[in-house]
């Protein structure tokens, strides 16, 4: 298995945090919702009032949007520009309908009444969902199992 070392060495910081208007001009179009291929990352940025940075690793590109609320959202794109994973961490949860796209309904159906009162860990056919935290500190990551680039350890998605 090919190992990716998680560190600045492999990442090139292509963009400094952009101001809102600057981003519309400088960000390259990319998928935004999980599994999506039509939306532009600018749409996410508008929703999040976010600054963005783009990091390139060997097997994926990560767009990190930091909302004015302090919550960071990461979108992981494969070599074809499709989002195969999303994650978030911060004081407020992002808009899951928007972030999970066509997978939102799948998440809702599986998130129903449950015995555990705490983190949500779901390994659905083809989709893995983790959410944890409490008020003012939320974390989550969701990935499409068969779209994670081969050789990428899933705990690099974070």
């Amino acid at each position: 298995m090919q190992r990716i070392h998680f560190g600045p060495r492999l990442f090139r910081k292509l963009l400094p945090p952009c101001a809102f208007l600057a981003l519309l001009l400088c960000a390259r179009p990319a998928s935004a919702a999980l599994g999506g291929d039509a939306l532009s990352i600018a749409a996410d940025q508008v929703r999040l009032a976010a600054s963005v940075r783009i990091l390139r690793a060997e097997l994926y590109t990560m767009h990190e949007l930091e909302a004015a609320t302090g919550t960071k959202v990461r979108e992981y794109l494969d070599s074809e520009g499709n989002v195969f994973a999303v994650s978030w961490q911060g004081p407020f949860r992002p808009n899951l309908r928007q972030l999970l796209g066509s997978y939102y309904e799948t998440f809702l159906k599986a998130a129903g009444p449950r015995v555990s009162r705490g983190p949500l860990n779901l390994s659905l056919p083809g989709l893995v969902i983790h959410m944890s935290g409490h008020q003012r500190a939320f974390y989550g990551r969701v990935y499409i199992v068969d779209r994670v680039p081969q050789g990428l350890p899933t705990d690099e998605i974070r």
Binding site: M1, H5, P119, N121, H130, P153, T154, D155
Partner: peptide
Amino acid sequence: TAPSSGGI
């Protein structure tokens, strides 16, 4: 969180 494949 769920099991994952690597230790990184």
